[in-house]
């Protein structure tokens, strides 16, 4: 078994083997999830706490379902409404939770690096469900699984990531993962939404979406946050849609069998045309959601195995990482 880490904080620290281990196990859970009886007991007796310091419906539901299907006791804490408002620091929150002896902590936080800060202070396994603009590892893993199932492989593909790269943790984790798996990555978007130093990432950057989409195998669209639309980073949503929105005409430049992905939730008519999102021959957006549950089951299963393997050594939580 390749994957021995204590936490899943990002793609950056994963090896190719780690990634394949998680994806292979996820395939197993895809099968399970399609059966009438969807229960397994990999997390039986364990407690999973979902802490979302940033509003989320889809990711939180996905983690909750994944935990429940594996038999964990799952608790959701809506952190944006609770103690943070009372001035409690992240560290104090972590220590409070730690005293409740959770086994798996699923954390989303609006600041980059916050999940790692928290992981350093607790004894359980921590899953990063998105930290600021930094990483969103399970999203990249579910995207990888979706691509592998649709394309039959996860290497030597030409993949375009389009839109707000600068503010996107999904883009960062995907660039890291798809790069590790030896794919060609193209980034497409307005300059104001490109991160600095992007030339050093080993990717190709395109201002012109038509040029960038030429002959790609995968088109990965990103969500454009509403607060960035009006004049701050781009002049207007209609100008954005005209230049960087995915419509049938632009998609026609990609390979005929190119797939369309989106992490959701979509802004139809801003970054993607509604008919493309709904086109069952091109869009794998619903499949991404399905793979999300399976990948999260796999990740939590593996972390729980590592947790158990190390508990036997009388570990206090600090010695291995």
């Amino acid at each position: 078994m390749g994957f021995t880490a204590r936490h899943l904080l990002g793609i950056e620290s994963l090896s190719k083997d780690d990634i394949l281990t998680i994806l292979d196990l996820a395939e197993h859970y895809v099968t399970l999830n399609r059966q009438p009886n969807k229960h397994a007991n990999a997390l039986a007796g364990l407690t999973q706490i979902n802490m979302f310091f940033e509003a989320s419906t889809r990711t939180q539901a996905s983690f909750e379902l994944a935990g429940k299907r594996l038999g964990a006791d799952v608790m959701n804490m809506a952190m944006q409404a609770s103690s943070i408002k009372k001035g409690e620091t992240l560290i104090d929150t972590a220590l409070t939770l730690n005293a409740m002896h959770p086994d798996l902590l699923v954390v989303r936080h609006p600041h980059s690096g916050a999940v790692r800060l928290l992981a350093d202070k607790v004894n359980c396994a921590v899953l990063n469900a998105g930290d600021g603009r930094h990483e969103h590892p399970t999203q990249a893993l579910l995207d990888a699984l979706t691509i592998r199932r649709a394309k039959g492989r996860l290497q030597r593909l030409s993949i375009a990531i389009c839109g707000d790269i600068a503010h996107s943790r999904v883009a960062r984790s995907n660039i890291l993962l798809l790069g590790k798996m030896e794919n060609r990555i193209r980034l497409i978007g307005p300059r104001t939404l490109m991160p600095s130093g992007i030339a050093e990432f080993g990717v190709e950057v395109f201002d012109d979406m038509r040029e960038g989409l030429k002959d790609v195998d995968v088109v990965m669209m990103l969500r454009l946050q509403r607060e960035r639309m009006d004049g701050a980073f781009i002049p207007s949503s209609r100008e954005y849609y005209h230049r960087w929105g995915l419509d049938a005409e632009k998609l026609a430049l990609a390979k005929p069998d190119a797939i369309v992905m989106h992490p959701g939730p979509m802004n139809r008519g801003v970054e993607i045309d509604g008919t493309i999102a709904d086109d069952i021959n091109r869009s794998v957006i619903q499949e991404q959601v399905e793979m999300g549950v399976a990948v999260r089951m796999a990740a939590m299963d593996l972390l729980a195995r590592n947790l158990r393997a190390n508990a036997g050594a009388g570990n206090d939580g600090g010695a291995w990482a």
Partner: peptide, 10 residues
């Protein structure tokens, strides 16, 4: 700004 800043998402 630069590659490091972008990798860390700061």
């Amino acid at each position: 700004n630069g590659k490091f800043a972008s990798l860390r998402g700061l």
